[in-house]
């Protein structure tokens, strides 16, 4: 069966950014190459088919055939999958995929009945970027910090700062002029929104980051010729390794670049201990809320720690 197939690929990442140019296009090109050009693709980036939070539904309903979606942007839809956004210290997305997919097989698959999952993972860890120096918990009291949502909001609250919500596009001016004092986000978005120009200081402690994934529409998947399915599955799962981006090397290079204009200081070990304690309490509260709803929150945390251990990623804040 030599049938060809064209993939309509959707993402909210901006067309000229690193995600589209250095990750998704190389991944789709690899699918094309391995299938001898029987797989082709059309790229709909920059939210051409819908707004950021709609991207899971865009794939689910079939406006696109395959796409990237940020799961933390639709709170309540994937309650257990939120475990992926715990404050873990993981600079490489491919490791996140390994742990994420192990979790998918163990307990998260019921949350994704509507789509074909190629991979789920946590984004590269988010740090704290501020306009004033922060070396201790006390410095954070009363600071207004823009949160990406989800577990990161709880983390900001747990540290004693005030989480503020606003579109990422407004953060630059708001930080520059003092509407907010800082932002919790990952290095990739700091770079994309030029926040390194306005944040003088960085605390490279991990807040965890949004959970995300790569999904395929179910009806489209049924139409994919059987011999092409393994290609899409394996290239999709190994997208980060194939593109060679968002790994330890990329993380180190980006942070080094930031250090030329920003003061980025690690917390002292004792101080880090205090922050981890706060994160731990936050995770206990989260797990208990899930348990109250009849979901295995505690088991999710321990399972996640086990799976992270297999790829050598630390989870010091894990309470169980």
């Amino acid at each position: 069966d030599k049938k060809k197939i064209n993939i309509r690929f959707s993402t909210w990442h901006v067309p000229s950014g690193a995600d589209v140019q250095k990750l998704w296009i190389p991944m789709l090109e690899e699918m094309k190459k391995r299938s001898n050009n029987r797989i082709t693709y059309t790229m709909y980036s920059g939210g051409a088919l819908g707004k950021g939070p709609d991207h899971f539904d865009i794939v689910k309903t079939g406006l696109s055939d395959m796409g990237y979606a940020t799961l933390s942007w639709t709170p309540g839809r994937f309650p257990l999958t939120d475990v992926l956004s715990s404050p873990i210290v993981c600079p490489a997305k491919w490791k996140g995929v390994e742990a994420g997919m192990a979790m998918y097989d163990r307990m998260l698959s019921p949350e994704f009945k509507d789509v074909k999952v190629l991979h789920i993972n946590n984004c590269v860890m988010a740090h704290l970027w501020t306009t004033r120096a922060v070396t201790r918990l006390e410095d954070l009291q009363g600071m207004k910090i823009r949160s990406p949502g989800g577990l990161q909001t709880r983390a900001i609250q747990a540290l004693g700062a005030t989480p503020v919500f606003m579109p990422l596009g407004d953060v630059y001016l708001s930080m520059e002029t003092g509407v907010i004092d800082g932002v919790v986000t990952c290095p990739a978005l700091v770079k994309a929104f030029k926040l390194n120009e306005v944040a003088g200081f960085g605390v490279p402690t991990s807040f965890g980051c949004v959970s995300e994934g790569l999904f395929v529409n179910k009806r489209f998947w049924e139409r994919v010729p059987e011999d092409l399915k393994p290609i899409i599955e394996s290239v999709g799962r190994d997208a980060y390794k194939i593109a060679g981006i968002f790994d330890e090397g990329w993380y180190a290079a980006t942070m080094a670049e930031f250090k030329t204009t920003m003061e980025i200081e690690e917390l002292s070990p004792a101080e880090q201990q205090r922050w981890d304690d706060r994160f731990r309490k936050m995770l206990v509260a989260w797990a208990e809320e899930l348990e109250a709803k009849g979901l295995p929150g505690k088991k999710a945390l321990t399972a996640f720690r086990e799976e992270l251990g297999r790829v050598g990623v630390g989870f010091n804040a894990c309470p169980y």
Binding site: T74, P75, G76, R77, P79, G149, G150, T153, P163, F165
Partner: peptide
């Protein structure tokens, strides 16, 4: 049935 809510206040 999907239980989607808002982020901060968990309004359905």
């Amino acid at each position: 049935h999907a239980n989607a809510t808002t982020d901060a206040l968990s309004i359905p």
